[in-house]
Simulated assay, not measured.
Amino acid sequence: MSQATQPETKGIQLSETALKHLVMLREQQGSDLCLRVGVRNGGCSGMSYMMDFEDPSNIRPDDEVYDYDGFKIICDPKSLLYLYGLMLDYSNALIGGGFQFTNPNASQTCGCGKSFGV
């Protein structure tokens, strides 16, 4: 019996729309940057999402690195405890548009969608 190969499951999922938008934003920065995703204390629900472009030389040995066709997403291990399974999407909608976080670990989210509680 042969087993079908399962696609690699990444701790942080990225929609095709979000990937295209991130690649466009990275090109505007003019260099080969990666995206750091994490959490910090604060926000309406207790913790807020953070993400920013970062030089690949800043990747630490304990960071998780996810590669999407050459675009790298990095996350520190402490943040990954709260973000594992996160789906990052992007919408062009005039109201409610922008990056959207769907986090299976969140027990509550705020109205803006940028913070959560566990």
Rank of each mutant, 00 (worst) to 15 (best):
G42F: 11
L80S: 08
S79V: 02
L33V: 05
C34D: 04
Y49M: 02
L81G: 14
G46S: 07
N58K: 12
I74A: 10
M51A: 06
L80T: 05
I73Y: 02
E64Q: 12
D55V: 00
P56A: 03
V37T: 02
S45R: 08
C44Y: 11
D62A: 12
S48F: 08
D52Q: 05
E64A: 14
Y68D: 02
I73N: 00
S57F: 12
N58S: 08
P61H: 03
Y82K: 10
E64L: 14
Y68G: 02
K72W: 11
L81R: 15
F71W: 10
G46R: 00
M51I: 04
L33H: 06
L81D: 14
D62Y: 13
L80Y: 13
S48W: 12
V65A: 12
G42I: 12
N41S: 14
N58W: 12
D67F: 13
D69E: 15
S45C: 14
G42A: 06
M50V: 10
D76T: 13
D62G: 02
K78E: 14
D52P: 00
S79C: 11
G43N: 05
R36W: 03
Y66C: 07
M50F: 09
P56V: 02
D62E: 15
Y49S: 00
D67H: 08
Y66S: 11
G38H: 04
I74H: 06
S57L: 12
R60V: 05
N58A: 08
V37A: 05
M51T: 01
G46T: 00
P61M: 03
S79Y: 07
F53L: 06
L33Y: 13
G38S: 09
L35M: 07
R60Q: 14
R60M: 09
D67L: 07
P61K: 04
D63G: 05
G46C: 03
Y49Q: 01
N41R: 09
F71Y: 08
D69R: 12
I59D: 07
V37M: 11
Y66V: 04
D67A: 06
P77N: 13
S45T: 08
G43A: 09
Y82T: 03
K78F: 15
Y66H: 12
E54Q: 08
V39K: 00
M50D: 06
K72G: 04
C75G: 02
M47F: 05
C75T: 05
D55Y: 13
S57N: 13
S57I: 06
P77C: 14
P56L: 04
D32K: 14
K72H: 11
Y66A: 08
M51K: 01
N41G: 10
G46I: 00
S57D: 15
G46E: 03
D55E: 10
D63K: 08
D62S: 09
M50T: 07
S45E: 12
L33D: 02
R60F: 06
K72N: 07
D76A: 15
D52Y: 07
S45I: 04
S79K: 03
S57K: 13
N41Q: 11
I73T: 02
P61E: 08
R60A: 15
N41V: 14
C34E: 01
D55W: 11
